[in-house]
Design a protein around this nucleic acid. Structure first.
Lengths: 217, 217
DNA sequence: GTTAGCATGTAAGGAGTTACATGATTTT
DNA sequence: AAAATCATGTAACTCCTTACATGCTAAC
């Protein structure tokens, strides 16, 4: 039962797999993915780095030279962390796991952001897992919604409606991603295919809503 | 610094203002609002009820008679809670507050679900507060997005794009709600108006985006 | 007869935050 | 000269969850 939904560890390991980094830089990158916006505090980050280092998955080295692209001189001595061999192995294990934990709310975003390092089958399993999780929840909430409709005031109702809509939207997003992943697999099997990625919204140059999107109640 | 972002307390008080309830029932209602879906545990609920009772805002009374609409006999003795005079006063104070705390992520949903008991000016201030908070964040994220675009792989980029879209959608939702609230105030000032509520999606039969909304980069 | 739902609670623990502590460098 | 950004860390605390403990009733 320890560290079951640790969002931080995989995120850190995944980012360090890309390139070595110091804590401060790491936090900035992390904030783009984690919860999409909210600021992760140093009070979480540094202890986590320490613990990862103690378990031998990363090592930190002091460095005064410029590590990022920006040419900058002696700030405070930074500690640049990188994965060890053990750390890489551990990360591979994490990335290969595709159980329910991978598609829960708390973890999905991080796992998705690491899809670049994840194999196609695992990606698909996670996407499908999340989709079925969400549709299942939609069912539950819709039923509760229908049952309690009369007893709820209009604001609560409106909040509910908006919540449902947001989830429906995520399901459609997942649909597109899954189609895309499947398309890629098929393409690779037929031709010698490029490793083309699942970015459904990459095209669509015209402003908006000219596409044949279904209206939904 | 104690209990700053307590989501539970206002939610409980707000629900009990509607009608007295026992813990189990309370939880079910709470789960529809709180986080929209996720199950609040009894491990949070019961201690919170206890603490509210200790502070004299609610009182619990044992009851074997049917309280809800369902005719049911002696289950385990339920403890039905209701607001005290002090509790009602405290709730009024909570509902009148419209500071930043009211529109933060953790609290907004609960505050919104209590709009039925909130006066029109406070509603408007909270909605506008949240909107400006979100647009501000959109700006920040868009800038970070633009700066880091090249260094992010396609999946991270796609996650980002989807996140931005969801927030944009919430902003548009808020726009509609705000328009509606303003429309209601104006209508009430001109005519003797009914207390009509802000449910923007009740009508709107035509698809979307026919309104003169600015395109934004 | 066993699973599911009703109903209330406690104890231990996890994942994170805020506040504090420190100090250099760059921008305004 | 002040404010913002860079950079690392610790201690205390908070809110919430999980697991445990108990027991009754309805449905399958």
């Amino acid at each position: 039962m320890r560290g079951r939904s640790d969002v931080l560890e995989p995120a850190i390991l995944g980012l360090l797999a890309g390139s070595p980094m110091h804590g401060y830089e790491l936090r900035k990158r992390l904030n783009l993915v984690l919860g999409s916006f909210r600021a992760l505090s140093y009070g979480s980050l540094y202890p986590c780095l320490k613990s990862l280092a103690e378990r031998g998955w990363i090592i930190g080295e002091e460095s005064t030279t410029a590590v990022t692209e920006r040419a900058l001189a002696s700030h405070r001595a930074r500690i640049v962390y990188q994965l060890t061999a053990d750390g890489k192995e551990h990360l591979q294990q994490l990335l290969a796991s595709s159980g329910p934990a991978a598609w829960e709310d708390e973890n999905f975003d991080v796992r998705f952001s690491l899809f670049g390092q994840t194999d196609a089958e695992t990606r698909l399993r996670i996407l499908e897992g999340r989709r079925s999780r969400l549709t299942e929840r939609l069912e539950t909430v819709r039923q509760a919604f229908a049952r309690a409709r009369e007893r709820m005031d209009e604001y609560t109702l409106e909040l509910q409606r908006h919540g449902l809509e947001q989830v429906e939207r995520e399901v459609r997003w997942l649909d597109e991603l899954i189609d895309n992943e499947r398309g890629v697999s098929r393409a690779r099997n037929r031709s010698g295919g490029r490793p083309a990625v699942a970015t459904p919204h990459a095209e669509a140059p015209t402003p908006a809503d000219t596409s044949p999107k279904k209206e939904r109640g």
